[in-house]
Each structure stands twice: as structure tokens, then as C-alpha cells.
């Protein structure tokens, strides 16, 4: 359960103030499939970053799964991100030095999971995302679709309640993009809250709830 109340986020560009989020209030129930759409600069990525606790709002309250997370310390925010949130990025953000398996293992390592258990969980994830024969490859040796599958496997390895995807198909061709979306939707069917930011209308239309943004405000919220 995600509950944002009157969230404001202001960026300063020189002596100009930009209200990336202006008094945004929104409730997203567990297990929902939401798309956030709008032109660039409308604040949709900022909204996603606030939901994902990467960014701190300048005003308003944020409640996640019944807990107020607005004023958590940096360390507590890192813990909540680790346990409840999974991020999928347009540019994958894999660590180039690490193999596919090691990239997927990262959150487990940060969580302090024992190596033997890490291995079995990573193996399971490699199987689930059809990456078994790519386990020892580095990102540079993987195709775009494979990279995004590694990123999704990494985002979901700790079974987060919410999966936040920022233009997940932006760097992929149409066919591979559709495969990746099918994968994300499969995770949604298994019970994960899925929030996708995109400016691709077709992609946005697949979600069950469509939130439209413009100039830092929610201008549409349709199911």
C-alpha cells in the first residue's frame, strides 16, 4: 500500500524554482498495475523516485505499507528500498565488471544473506528469467533484452512488494520490449505492485490504472 499525501518536490535551477511535484496525493493499493504517463518534465520520474525512496519530498507525507517513511534516516531508507522496492531502469544500470549472476546477487549481498543461500536463490532467479547459460557473462556480452532481464531478476531477488520501472523498454526494440513487459506483467500477476513510467501510449495502455501528469501535478487518474 502506497499512500502519498500532498507531496511537493522543488528543484532549484539557478535562482529559479521548479516544482517537479506540486501537492501530489495518490493511493496505490498492493498488487495494482499502474502506468504513469506524461510529457518529459512533467514530474513522472520524480514521482517514481519519491515512491522508491530515492528522493526525499520537500513537503507532504508518504506512507508505505502502513508505516510513515517520510522522515526516515538515510540508513533506514536504504533498508526499506532493499526490502520493499525493486527498480528497473531504462539504461539497465548493471555493474559492468560483474557477471550476470553477480549483478543479480548484489541485493542479497547488501542484505547480508549467507553465500550458500545466495547461490541457490541466484540459481533459481537465473532459471526463472531464462538466463542460465548467460550466468557468467558480463553485461557487455549480453543483448539488450538479456540485460534488462538481469536487471529485473536483480530488482526482484529480494521479493519486493513494489516494482518500479522507469521506461523499462526505452532502450529495446519493439519485440524485445514486449517480451520484457510480459515478464513484468507476469510478476504483477504473482502479486507484486507494478508501477511503470513511460511516455509510450501503447505501453501505458496495458496497465490497469493510468495516471497522467503535467507540470508536477496529476491531471488524470483512470482505471
Amino acid at each position: 500500500m502506497i499512500r502519498l499525501a500532498a507531496i511537493t518536490r522543488v528543484f532549484r535551477m539557478g535562482d529559479q524554482e521548479v516544482r517537479a511535484l506540486n501537492n501530489v496525493s495518490i493511493d496505490i493499493a498492493s498488487g495494482e498495475y499502474v502506468s504513469i504517463m506524461g510529457p518529459s518534465g512533467s514530474g513522472k520520474s520524480t514521482l517514481l523516485n519519491v515512491i522508491g525512496l530515492l528522493d526525499r519530498p520537500d513537503g507532504g507525507r508518504y506512507e508505505l505499507d502502513g508505516n510513515d517513511v517520510t522522515d526516515l534516516s538515510e540508513n533506514e531508507r536504504a533498508r526499506v528500498r532493499r526490502e520493499k522496492i525493486g527498480f528497473v531502469f531504462q539504461s539497465f544500470h548493471l555493474v559492468p565488471r560483474l557477471t550476470a549472476a553477480e549483478n543479480i546477487e548484489l541485493p542479497l549481498m547488501l542484505e547480508g544473506v549467507a553465500p550458500t543461500e545466495r547461490k541457490s536463490r541466484v540459481d533459481a532467479a537465473l532459471d526463472a528469467f531464462d538466463l542460465r547459460d548467460r550466468a557468467r557473462h558480463r553485461p557487455s556480452e549480453l543483448s539488450g533484452g538479456q540485460r534488462q532481464r538481469v536487471a529485473i531478476a536483480r530488482a526482484t531477488i529480494l521479493r519486493p512488494t513494489a516494482l518500479l520501472a522507469d521506461e523499462p523498454t526505452g532502450n529495446l526494440d519493439h519485440r524485445i520490449g514486449a517480451e520484457v513487459m510480459a515478464l513484468l506483467e507476469g510478476l504483477h500477476h504473482a502479486g507484486t505492485t507494478l508501477i511503470v513510467v513511460t511516455h509510450d501510449r501503447e505501453l501505458g495502455a496495458r496497465a490497469h490504472r493510468h495516471i497522467g501528469m503535467r507540470d508536477g501535478e496529476i491531471v488524470a487518474d483512470e482505471t
Binding site: 522508491g52 540508513n75 548493471l94 541485493p107 547488501l110
Partner: peptide, 16 residues
């Protein structure tokens, strides 16, 4: 930089 951002996104603390 972006790798550090990623580590933070997947839950690394500043201390990590």
C-alpha cells in the same frame, strides 16, 4: 557515479 547510484537504489547504505 551511476554505479554508486545503482548500489544505493538496490539498498546499499552510505556506510556500505
Amino acid at each position: 557515479t551511476s554505479e554508486i547510484g545503482l548500489l544505493k537504489a538496490v539498498g546499499a547504505t552510505s556506510a556500505d
